[in-house]
Amino acid sequence: MTRFLLRLAFVVALPLFLLGLWWLASDDSTNPFWPPLRTILTTFPDVWTSERLRADVLPSVLRLSAGYAVAAVAGVAVGTVIGSYRRVRALCEPVLEFLRAIPAPVLIPVIMLFAGIGDTMKITVIASGCVWPILLNTVEGVRAVDPVMAETARSYGITGAARLRNVVLRSASPQIFAGLRQALSIAIILMVISEMFAASNGLGFTIVQFQRGFAVPDMWTGILVLGLLGFALSVVFQLVERRVLGWYHGLRASARRSP
């Protein structure tokens, strides 16, 4: 119990300190673009009513989830194929390097031409930006399957789908998760950017609306919401990762104990 409290104290200490700093630094601010934190916090409940959460935050979260899911499935699937076959890899590598180097936001105008300005466009933008770290990490993870494990699987007749499920993807899962983690922060950025371009709702849209209407404290509350959303997503991600990669953390810890 005390250990839990201690850990909790460690988690919240720095955020509280920074908030306090912000509070003090902005307390007597008269600059309209830099309102006191007190003002921002009192504005917060007025702006982020349950109505607004449903109308703006929910669509954003849905787009983000859809784009992220598409990227995860496509990235792992294509990455597994590329990682499994040397020939395919040699063929794809230069193209991948090129595609990866294009920042996803510049694709928004192009994607708008094909996918319009609706949800499809935003999901496509998010997916096309997120897919690269997932794909490239999957390729590396699949390539790095231990040869002894691969031979063990072969000698026991573990081939095809069973091999993919029980050996290849499991062995690559630490790398795949590293890619998924990178992709998560990219997904949030692209969600906001795509909503700033052409949208009628969503977090990015709302923040830009506030800014254009000079509702500065409201704009700041939007930024806080974005930060909280990112934090919540990363907590969820960590919970999932801890479950799926429990074996990996245990393995690493035991390797550290007896090198």
Binding site: V148, M149, T152, S155, N166, R170, S171, W247, L251
Partner: peptide, 18 residues
């Protein structure tokens, strides 16, 4: 199918995720 192999490198022959 009628053969089983026990490898020199035991640490890398068992699947650590199972």
């Amino acid at each position: 199918p009628g053969m089983a192999f026990v490898f020199q490198e035991y640490g890398r022959s068992l699947f650590p995720w199972m």
